[in-house]
Design a protein around this nucleic acid. Structure first.
Lengths: 333, 333
DNA sequence: CAGGGCGATGTCAACGCTGACGGACTCGGG
DNA sequence: CCCGAGTCCGTCAGCGTTGACATCGCCCTG
């Protein structure tokens, strides 16, 4: 489609294709005069190097695939935004897929089915099993995000875990340090022991235990999704049941946004009456009223770290990595 | 990286590379027996076709680039989600870029700089000028979304416009039909006459004029961004100024969500006291309380239509296309 | 039994680019 | 005047794949 090739440029200038290639890539020796004429011709003809040919010649593509369950969820939208932004800064391109939490799709992705040749796949798995990973044939480097796949079987897999337990504990300890004692945990799910929900609940329990506070089942609120609507519903239910509360630890920021909404509608002041802490540090927390206190690492940090890993892929980084957590204190707690 | 090539498979089976190619692509004639042996070997060796080589051979990549200002904005996140979903259904792959509303980045993108070879670029431009488009060298098909680039100079450009005026008019007429007379327009901006904001304001005025209702400047609310926070702020300001209102037409759904929040906090019932209509038909409107009445076309429809255009790119579709609008009636109005 | 048609597979070249290598030419020192 | 080192540029081949075309054996028809 592009039409103009190295050869075309070479012909109009009257040199060999290789010389033009040298000019384009800054390799070899080219006299200033020839270089200028070549550059001129390139501009003139509108020559653009052909990616496919380049790639075919020497393995790399500069392409990186990111696969998340659903871009509609704010957390994944932000994650994707951070990836794309970081990639653009680093001269790479991100190609995005949605798994819809479908195991077959996740399985197809780790095999690279339907994908162009990429340098690495970054996957936030939800349904993938250890067997699937074990059965993997593709040798494309794979970076797994999150807890769902804590099992590593293939030597080409890198796992980047979130500091779920420690971050959650830090968040709840922050609430306790402010004198809060009736702290609700919003986001309980009936999932496996390695699921994010379970790990965050564990951090919550550890913090309470550390302060000698008993866990009140009435303060453990189950949700179906980590969504705004569920956050609202949870709080409405607690209020309806007249549960005494002075703080909320929400298992992600969307839940927290929903909770803030419910509190505002019911005339409950934040943080005076009830303090609120979220989890994930997504951007929108800067713009809510009040602004949201939350724990990270945020998407930017994750993206940055993943790119670091990918850049050093030939060397070491196989195995499990866990990012440090950080507490982002804003107005809500 | 993949290592295994057609030739490898061919050698182990004892046929020619071309035959393997025929099996893979379902082209030509291959006996069932050979086909089975080849398939077996493919599975055995873990052969994966090389995208770069395929592409080099015959122009297509199956890659499609989508460039939006910022994935963090819910509307663009949904648009991207719809694109990715539709692409997956249609056997294509989407690669995403963010422009950050930066003219240099938009300019670089329409030239394909830094991008791999793609079949088409879909761009939602904010800063691009007519000159930029005129100066474009790349011949990659380009689909422009939205109003910012109503000027077409290059014959390889397809413009997909939103039905801003007609959809807005329909939204406001819907409010008027319910007997609403004090209808605020939330989302006024001081931008050019072709900007979305101006066109939506025009639809609003047309609807009022059609019903013989005068425009009250107190009901025209300016915003900086089309964001949730600004929607909240606008409504708080109106309430603070004791402006009489019985309906809100918000220029996008995010503004509407913010408005719903402000109304709820202030104990104003929706739709009994104030009706609310948004614009864009993003998914979240299904989950708010109350659910949001809005006008489309929604992201899904847009994505679908863009893919149709791209599939028929060789033929006709150069020029301006405008999607039909649709009114999505839910609880809020 | 010649000739045509069809099924099944192979040969060849080219897509655009770039490493490895090989001239040719200049210049300065021995 | 010869030779090595340094410049500048070209030739060649091949990355993996697939269209165009050739080949070969077979059955069918007249």
């Amino acid at each position: 489609m592009a039409g103009v090739t190295l050869r075309d440029v070479a012909l109009t200038v009257g040199v060999s294709a290789k010389t033009v290639s040298n000019v384009v890539n800054g390799t070899g020796w080219v006299s200033d005069e020839v270089r200028d004429r070549v550059k001129e011709a390139i501009r003139e003809l509108g020559y653009r190097p052909n990616f496919a040919a380049r790639q075919l010649r020497h393995g790399r593509t500069g392409l990186l695939a990111l696969a998340v369950p659903d871009l509609r969820e704010p957390y994944f939208a932000e994650l994707a935004a951070s990836f794309v932004g970081t990639a653009q800064k680093r001269g790479r391109t991100v190609l995005i897929n949605q798994t819809g939490a479908d195991r077959d799709i996740e399985r197809a992705l780790i095999e690279g089915e339907g994908l162009p040749s990429i340098d690495a796949l970054v996957l936030s798995p939800l349904a993938l099993t250890a067997e699937d990973l074990g059965a993997r044939r593709s040798r494309t480097p794979l970076v797994l995000l999150g807890e769902q796949a804590a099992v590593l079987l293939d030597e080409s897999i890198v796992h980047l875990g979130m500091p779920n337990v420690t971050a959650s504990r830090a968040a709840v300890e922050h609430l306790i340090a402010q004198g809060r004692r009736r702290i609700a945990a919003i986001g309980i799910q009936n999932s496996g022991p390695n699921a994010s929900s379970s790990l965050r609940a564990l951090g919550y329990r550890e913090a309470l235990a550390g302060a000698g506070i008993a866990v009140d089942p009435a303060l453990l609120r189950e949700v179906v999704h980590f969504s705004r609507a569920e956050g609202t519903r949870s709080v409405e239910e607690m209020l309806g049941a007249r549960v005494e509360v002075d703080a909320l630890f929400c298992f992600n920021d969307s839940l927290a946004f929903g909770a803030l909404h419910a509190l505002a509608v019911n005339g409950i002041r934040v943080p005076e009456d009830v303090a609120v802490v979220g989890f994930d540090d997504i951007d929108e927390g800067r713009y809510t009223v009040p602004t949201l206190t939350t724990v990270g690492p945020g998407p930017e940090v994750i993206a940055d770290h993943v790119f670091d890993l990918i850049d050093r892929l030939e060397e070491q980084p196989i195995g499990r990595h866990v990012l440090p957590h950080e507490l982002v204190i804003r107005e809500s707690a």
